[in-house]
C-alpha cells in the first residue's frame, strides 16, 4: 500500500491537522510501511467471524435517570485558553 501525497493531505484534512511539507512526506513513507505490514491481515478468511466490539460480556449499560451534581461552571472554564461571559470564546465563525 503506497500512499500518495494527496492521500496524506486528505487524511490530515479529515483529522483537522495542519502538516508541514516535510511532515507530509515523512508520514507518507511511514504510514505506507505500516499499512504494508498490516497487509498480512488480508490473508485470513474472516467472512464468518464477527468483529469484537467489546471484550466484555455486556450489551448495554443502563442506570436510573437521576440528576447528580455536576462541576460548577467556573471549574469547567478554568482550563480554557479564552472565555467570556461564562462561555468558551473562539474566533468568529461567521462574519
Amino acid at each position: 500500500m503506497t500512499l500518495t501525497l494527496r492521500d496524506v493531505e486528505h487524511i490530515a484534512d479529515l483529522a483537522r491537522l495542519a502538516l508541514t511539507a516535510e511532515e507530509k512526506e515523512r508520514f507518507r513513507e511511514q504510514l505506507s510501511a505500516i499499512l504494508d505490514y498490516a497487509a498480512s491481515l488480508q490473508r485470513l478468511d474472516i467472512s464468518d467471524i464477527p468483529p469484537t466490539a467489546t471484550v466484555l460480556p455486556l450489551r448495554n449499560v443502563m442506570r436510573e435517570d437521576v440528576a447528580r451534581p455536576s462541576l460548577p461552571p467556573e471549574d469547567v472554564l478554568a482550563n480554557a485558553p479564552d472565555t467570556a461571559e461564562g462561555c468558551f470564546r473562539v474566533r468568529a465563525i461567521l462574519e
Binding site: L41, I49, P50, T52, A53
Partner: peptide
C-alpha cells in the same frame, strides 16, 4: 477487518 481478527 482488524476487529474481526481480534475475535480470532
Amino acid at each position: 477487518r482488524a476487529q474481526r481478527v481480534r475475535t480470532l
